[in-house]
Amino acid sequence: MQAAVRYNYGSVDKVQVAEIDKPEPGKGQVGIEVNNAGLDRGIVHMLTGVPQVMRLGTGLRKPSNPLLGIDFLGQVNAVGEGVTGFEAGQLVYGNGVGTLAEYAIATPIQIAVVYPETLDYSLGILPASGCTALQALRDQAKVEPGQRVLINGASGGVGTFAVQLAKHHGM
């Protein structure tokens, strides 16, 4: 299968399309045939390795995983041992590993919902930024309806969603 990979941190010129083995889901994993994948600021951080503190989790000198991509929309193509609630052919979206490829792997908890077939396919690339904004407002800041929030830096993916979610929830 083809995938966008990078073997060193750096600019976009480090990215190449490579032929790699198709990932097979292991225990507790779901295999996804990717239709759409999202690009956001997080991918730039993964590509460049900046801020450098993130390299503690992604590889100090070079990426420990050459694959890029988090968001996806696609069909379940295989389920690993112990996975329930998903079956081959289901249209799903969520977060996975190496989604800038023809096939990727996700865990059931990363597949937020079965994708409604009536929605535009381009919406399948939204989970990382939207979920991050929701978790920041609801889970971390514990903002309640009627409270006021200041969202600094609302020009990126997370900030844009945070403004919309705050307004929707009466914050």
Rank of each mutant, 00 (worst) to 15 (best):
R55A: 10
A133S: 07
N35V: 11
A162E: 01
M46V: 11
I151L: 09
Q140H: 12
V92C: 05
L100K: 04
L119E: 11
N35K: 14
V30W: 02
V97A: 10
G159T: 15
E144Y: 03
A133P: 02
I109W: 02
V92H: 01
A154I: 14
T160R: 00
G94M: 04
N36S: 11
R138K: 14
L134N: 10
C131T: 10
L126R: 02
G28R: 11
Q52P: 10
T48I: 03
V143K: 06
A112T: 14
A128H: 07
E144A: 06
G159D: 12
V158Y: 02
G69M: 03
G38R: 05
F161I: 12
Y103W: 08
G130F: 09
K142S: 05
K167H: 14
E87W: 03
C131A: 14
F86D: 01
P145F: 01
A141Y: 02
P63V: 13
E81T: 05
E81A: 05
L68W: 02
D40F: 04
G49D: 04
L67I: 07
G98D: 03
L165F: 11
I111E: 02
A136L: 14
V97P: 08
A128R: 07
G59Y: 07
G94R: 03
K27S: 02
G26M: 01
S155A: 14
E33A: 13
V79E: 04
D40T: 12
E102N: 14
Q164F: 05
L126S: 12
H45V: 06
V44Y: 15
I43L: 12
R61W: 12
H168G: 15
L68A: 11
R138I: 08
G130T: 13
N77C: 12
E117M: 12
